[in-house]
Design a protein around this nucleic acid. Structure first.
Lengths: 136, 136
DNA sequence: TAATGTTTGCAATCGAGTTGCGCTAATACC
DNA sequence: GGTATTAGCGCAACTCGATTGCAAACATTA
């Protein structure tokens, strides 16, 4: 397990107080977090600072973002060695009851045969339903 | 090809002027449409009326919605016989250049093995890149 | 026809995301 | 060390898609 400092160093992102606490929070969660989730967890850090931190992290592939259809973009730390290329992508599961988003990292996305001359760059795969806790 | 009236009858949605023009517009497009797209196309129909019409259509499975990550939900008419169940789902392609969303209806979603006790209800699969027109 | 329910248009509101700006901290340069 | 330059931060304001309250118009039923 890498520390926040190690991750930032590897991804060539300068370390700051805000970046450390945001990344620490993301590492501590097992579910992808929205801007609001992070804002609530870090009471003394401004929303726009968190927002810009997330942008920086995403540009430098520290984290990846997920559009789960909840209306809020969620963020999760990339796995070690991830370059956010199609081959690094995985499915996400969004629980429609508890609104949590799970990274299904063990479920790689199969090869997708696109129509002629289409070029694949990215993918956002979200399956929705009930998670184990809500499926009672 | 079914007419608007036939579709609404089958899906048990009462026909009205707004519903007819919205559905006609959606049927005439080959790309999924956003609320704004529809609003622009139907100059004399109020946005909130279109919005509520889309909600009604979605509830009654006349259309399905797609979150393509553009920030605007897009809508497309369901194929005949579609019940918006997992087996009816398909991938969508979002062109990051022209912002158009394509339904890849010929590309069914493979069976997804979820973790223990997770229940699949829906899926929102969007691959992103360049469409044939923009991939030059 | 009267009563009731549904649909529509307008205006206002909500909320996630984003930006401008001034201050402060860090870094580079002399 | 001292000063100039750059980067990061916090606050407040703003954007824009989505949503709602309300009253008028329309449709349905008794």
């Amino acid at each position: 397990m890498q520390t926040e400092e190690e991750i930032l160093k590897i991804k060539k992102v300068k370390n700051t107080a805000v970046r450390t606490v945001v990344l620490r929070h993301l590492l501590a969660q097992e579910k992808a977090q929205s801007l609001k989730d992070i804002e609530n967890a870090l009471a003394y850090t401004d929303r726009s600072s968190i927002f810009r931190t997330l942008k920086t992290f995403e540009e430098n592939k520290v984290i990846h973002s997920i559009e789960d259809g909840s209306g809020m973009t969620k963020y999760a730390v990339c796995a070690e060695g991830c370059n956010c290329e199609p081959k690094d992508l995985h499915y996400h599961f969004y629980c429609t009851n508890c609104s949590k988003t799970f990274c299904l990292v063990d479920l790689p996305i199969p090869h997708i045969k696109l129509p002629e001359n289409f070029k694949l760059h990215q993918a956002n795969m979200v399956v929705k339903g009930l998670c184990d806790k809500c499926n009672k």
